[in-house]
Each structure stands twice: as C-alpha cells, then as structure tokens.
Amino acid sequence: MTNKMKHNQDRCDFCGVCVGVCPHDAIELREAELIVDDERCTRCGQCVQACPIHALEVNDEAGV
C-alpha cells in the first residue's frame, strides 16, 4: 500500500472519483482495492478534496 496517503478501506466505496481527479495517475482502483503509487503521488491532496466520503487523507507522519 502507500505511505504518502492514508486510505480508510472501511469508509471507501471504491467509486473511483479520486482516480479521475489525480493529476499524476498515481491511483489504481480494482474492484474493492485502492492502490496509491508512492513513486507518483505528490501529496497534492486533490483526491482528498474530491472523495465523496472522506476515505483519503494526506499522511502527515510519513517523511517527504
């Protein structure tokens, strides 16, 4: 999984809105699995803003 983003699997509906807005093509949605690519993710937070149910947040604890 990822270090740069915190993903709450129990809230997530796996709808893919985050994938649609990600400027870096860093998110992969499977049927019921979300994978954030730390190599691509810049922690811009647009997926956080777009998520319909607050299932994503930027992980402030992870080193940049």
């Binding site: 809105v17 649609g20 807005v21 990600c22 093509d25 647009q46 803003q49 777009a50 998520c51 319909p52």
Partner: peptide, 10 residues
C-alpha cells in the same frame, strides 16, 4: 483527467 471544479462528487 478531470479538473477538481468540474468533478461532481456524489
């Protein structure tokens, strides 16, 4: 890719 303002989040 969809710009944030143009994404209707539902």
């Amino acid at each position: 890719r969809t710009a944030l303002a143009d994404m209707e989040s539902c």
